[in-house]
Write a protein that binds this DNA or RNA. Structure first.
Lengths: 384, 384
DNA sequence: TTTGTTAGTAAAGCTTACGAACAAACACCT
DNA sequence: AGGTGTTTGTTCGTAAGCTTTACTAACAAA
């Protein structure tokens, strides 16, 4: 049954069966393969028989799939189980978590592109940064390529793929349709990187990447919304474990939604009272400086209230159970978050949405690049 | 290859492959079977070869699947294609659209349960109603059973299934978790009807059913939100063609979300300024009577503005392309709808969401029961 | 030593889809 | 009229995938 699969191939599946597309036995096989992988990924050190019981597949089938995975270098045998019990001792298996690395890039910061090398567990083994120095357009793409190259050069094992969290609107093919700060309009970043490095590349919106990270590493449940507050305000939505992209790939773009019915500051976009005018970090800092230290709490509370006002209809309509904030802790985690959750509860139906929780991310600065890594994991291995 | 499938069986599949569950060849077969059915459903009168080209399956496979479907009585041969062209003339096929009927029930009206018998195209061949007469709890269930029985008795061909659109919160197993007006709390309506009639039954929230109907019969696209305005206010969401249920099955329950930052009337739920206080039909009528004819437009416009204020964050966050209103045309289709769309556009980012459209449903009073029928179609045949 | 249990493998069989090849039926060209 | 090419739908054989059945290996308990 040794499948003699050519070198590194075998898990470069297309993935993503579109709903209305034929299903061949081979696709079913790929699915079951991912299922085995996923079982090992979530908690390793299981025997073939354990996996069979857990997945519902037979031991025979699991053995065949595991043989494939071992041949591909993704799974290793760890030796026999210590535990003493009747019957033949089990051979424990685990993902070879150091067999591959993932390159994760975060393009969402204002003046820096940062990246890291992550193993399959999400452990970071190397980091790199490039200063943006005001680059836009092609020059900014060159910075991305340079950053990726720096990380690729540091890898000592094969690279599973490159994941990128980019600001702006990104379509499903990894084309950045619009990222004003970087001067990108229809920039095919995914193709460019793929052509350059010859490995699978996945590009998505930064907030979408972030919510994936929070789901995989931060314990967020399957219906969650992550609000990313920085130079702008954006959101990533996870519904039933699947990221939401929207009809024009602009889901989560809530920075320029008007909040409340009582005016507000004029926004760069021309409207008055956009969420960003209250909540973006530059605006927040400006207001804090204007009003002075005495009014600090009041300013933060008001920003939090505005966020709550904007989120209430969304939480209600989507029946979200969890809202997560990402951004500078010193500003967000305090009166602002408290006011947001209060407002949210006062404005939604307790019976349905009373138990909505709001918390800060636990992943700190690395949230986007970890999310980018999750995209690769899920795209290449069907694991998340 | 005649499958000699026992009488009516053969398409009573479980459906709904959960993402993390094994896939057997048999499941793949079911998928491909649905694929063939779906191509015929959308526009019939195709040959086996046509279907093969369209689905990507081979003619051989399509022939086998079609033989199954003919044996099950779902597909019929129509004879040879008239059109004259080279090659052996094709044998045209179509769904046997009158081979089965679907029972669709609408429990969302205030004082009446209504239902209909629909064929696979959604054409209504019989109707029935029962007066609710204030029934709640078990008594209300009896009314539902009586209504279904009335329709079942009128059917002259086998019944594909019963679909029900119920108010309130309904879980995926068709248990009505909470429907205050009917006094239902954890009422297992789906099991009850299934036990009673021995055919597949699907129960879902009325607004969810409605948005499915609008998608299948009303031309709504795959990312749409339907606002159902009646005694209460609720919404049904379709994202990527899939209905959204939410973490507690309460998605779309937006009637008691507070709108705006300037107070409003006190609601039955205790809060002030809920969407329902502005928009529910009883409240709207009351206000129209209070303010008199001269203020009619102003009252309707204000209600529309409130709806727009509540929807803006949702449209922004989800990047919806289409919002649909269902309810009394004489109140909704005019100043109210106009004000809603204006408000929506003023409060969202034109670049992303500018082309959001808002319109009335084209399905009138039958929207919920048609949606209930779509649920059966999609659940039993994988067609929609 | 016997009994019963568990792990993993091997062989055979079923299902499903595919490709090759073919006959039937037709249009079109000479 | 007859040949040529095209299209349809079927038959036959094959490849892939999972299951069932049956087996061996390895262990604990009595």
């Amino acid at each position: 049954m040794t499948t003699t699969s050519a070198s590194n191939a075998g898990f470069a599946h297309g993935r993503a069966l579109r709903p209305s597309s034929k299903v061949l036995p081979e696709h079913a096989r790929g699915h079951n393969r991912s299922l085995v992988l996923q079982t090992l990924y979530r908690s390793g050190r299981r025997s073939r028989a354990d996996i069979a019981r857990e997945t519902g597949l037979t031991r025979v089938t699991v053995s065949a799939l595991v043989a494939d995975l071992i041949a591909d270098g993704l799974v290793v045998e760890l030796g026999q189980r210590e535990e003493t019990r009747p019957g033949k001792p089990a051979t424990l298996l685990d993902l070879d978590r150091s067999a591959f690395v993932i390159v994760g890039l975060d393009l969402s910061e204002h003046s820096t592109f940062s990246g890291a090398l992550l193993d399959l567990d999400g452990t970071i083994s190397a980091r790199a940064e490039v200063a943006l120095a005001g680059s836009t357009g092609e020059a900014a793409v060159e910075k991305v390529v340079a950053l990726a190259q720096q990380l690729v050069d540091q890898a000592t094992v094969p690279i599973l793929g490159i994941g990128v969290g980019s600001p702006g609107v990104v379509d499903l093919g990894g084309v950045v349709l619009s990222a004003p700060n970087l001067g990108w309009n229809g920039m095919p970043l995914q193709s460019i990187l793929n052509a350059r490095f010859g490995v699978p590349v996945l590009v998505a919106n930064d907030a979408n990447a972030a919510v994936l990270a929070e789901h995989s590493f931060g314990g967020a449940d399957s219906d969650a919304m992550l609000i990313k507050i920085g130079h702008g305000v954006g959101a990533g939505l996870l519904l039933g474990g699947t990221p939401l992209f929207g009809s024009r790939f602009a889901a989560g773009e809530i920075g320029h939604v008007v909040v409340g019915t009582d005016g507000g500051a004029v926004c760069a976009c021309g409207k008055r009272g956009c969420l960003e005018t209250w909540l973006s970090i530059p605006n927040l800092i400006e207001r804090l400086e204007e009003e002075g230290d005495a009014a600090r709490t009041a300013v933060l509370r008001e920003a939090g209230e505005r966020l709550g006002i904007a989120l209430a209809p969304v939480v209600g309509a989507l029946d979200l159970s969890e809202v997560i904030l990402a951004g500078p802790t010193e500003l967000l985690d305090g009166p602002l978050a408290a006011a947001t959750v209060e407002t949210l509860r006062n404005r939604t139906m307790a019976e349905f949405h009373g138990s909505v929780t709001l918390r800060m991310t636990t992943l700190g600065q690395d949230i986007v690049l970890r999310g980018a890594a999750v995209m690769v994991l899920s795209g290449q291995l069907g694991v998340s």
